[in-house]
Design a protein around this nucleic acid. Structure first.
Lengths: 243, 243
DNA sequence: CGTATGATTGATGTAGATCAAACATTGTGG
DNA sequence: CCACAATGTTTGATCTACATCAATCATACG
């Protein structure tokens, strides 16, 4: 439903190119090269894994539409979602470089990804400096996100974690133009949110309710509204751009 | 003291080049280009900051000897150390790409770094595919480390966090050949360890003692010994190479 | 020697986990 | 179109891992 709208508004691969271009100033040729990489498009349904920790990486995925999560499991089956991928994000490039993936990845809702052959991408990156720069820039962005996640889990209270995460997601959504009329589609269940924030499901639920009660966020069904990001950012110790 | 030994055994820049070469197969020319980047060498004394969160990044640092930490602060002054940098590691490249640094960095002991002009490095990377590949590989490695840290903080118990972290450090130390006769130099205070593991100082101390008591680790003054990494890895849910 | 800095110990408090239901909402097949 | 199964959310009661507070105890160093 909402999904379809998003797809319709973002022609294949555009999100990716737009993001890369935003930083890297690709030449015509590089743009075409990048575009040509986007040959196979996979559709992955909610909950399905498309990358497994420890596995050899042969394909790198570029999210075209939908949300994905990267996660790790402990030996006793607990799950930690390390970071969320939104349209334009690249999944598995690190793993392609290092050989095996350090995480698993699954779809949080109906997901559409461009699957690129790892070797082919690697070669393209080597020969196209702009593309290499763009990939490095993307990796740097992912590191910022992971570092934020470390701060959340290590030193923020449950309430702050929720607020901080919502800020981050809200900002990222706005960056890829996925907030329409002040409303965003938010497909994560509270269970997934809990596994992202390193909290229990119950506690996540209560903290979320607390934020709703004071009107800092609205979240019903999968519609998210953050009326005033600045206030939530303040509460959650979120530093970084608010748009 | 121990520091000097390490320096003596690792001529300037070697650690960096060795690590890059380990993966990236630099050509003669690229090797020289990389070596030429290492012009200014700074010595930073224990506790001193050399990079500040939010600040514009003009220099990228390559650790030649010593340990460094990257950390973030919360508004109420709590510190979260996000990851540790060892010889061969690069600090600030992400920040150079994105403009400002997403973290602060400080020396954990007497530190020697090669300071490279960010723009110059950026240009060198663009023109040397091998170097670009090496930087990407390094960024990927940092990614893995951050993801491990997220898992630790989000889903491991205090005891597991300590064990997991010690495994990771032990493995990394061995990778850069910093374990001599089964003994490593470990310059972190328990306070810094606590801020890395997202625990209180007191609790960190107790968990560490527990590991010492059962003989899984030895740590006195700053000499660390891990007699059997595999066992510690098992306890701490550490996945990944044990050497 | 005294003064920092770091490590250790003990007592107490609490944020958040866990357990166990009940309650909504959605989709599905008869 | 309705029962009902499945998935997700909410609530309440209880428990515990870890934080916090407050000393005391090393160790090094000027």
């Amino acid at each position: 439903m909402k999904q379809n709208v998003a797809v319709a508004r973002q022609p294949r691969g555009r999100a990716f190119l737009t993001r890369l271009r935003g930083f890297a100033e690709l030449t015509e040729e590089e743009g075409r090269a990048a575009e040509n990489l986007l040959h196979r498009v996979d559709t992955i349904s909610r909950g399905a894994d498309f990358l497994t920790e420890g596995q050899t990486v042969t394909d790198v995925f570029i999210v075209l539409s939908g949300w994905a999560m990267r996660y790790c499991l402990t030996s006793d089956g607990r799950r930690q979602i390390t970071n969320i991928a939104l349209p334009g994000d690249i999944i598995g490039y690190n793993g392609a470089l290092l050989g095996t993936s350090s995480f698993s990845a699954a779809a949080l809702n109906q997901l559409s990804v461009a699957a690129v052959d790892a070797g082919q991408l690697s070669r393209a990156v080597s020969s196209q400096p702009g593309l290499s720069r763009a990939m490095a820039w993307h990796a740097a962005g992912e590191n910022v996100g992971l570092r934020n996640q470390v701060l959340r889990l290590g030193r923020l209270t449950a309430e702050q974690r929720v607020a901080h995460f919502i800020c981050e997601i809200w900002v990222r959504l706005s960056q890829v133009d996925m907030i329409e009329m002040g409303v965003a589609h938010f497909p994560m269940t509270q269970s997934e949110l809990a596994d992202t924030l390193g909290l229990s499901l119950v506690h996540t639920n209560r903290q979320l309710q607390a934020l709703k009660k004071v009107g800092l966020v609205t979240l019903q069904r999968d519609r998210l509204v953050v009326p005033d990001v600045a206030v939530v950012a303040e509460l959650g110790n979120y530093k970084g751009p608010l748009s």
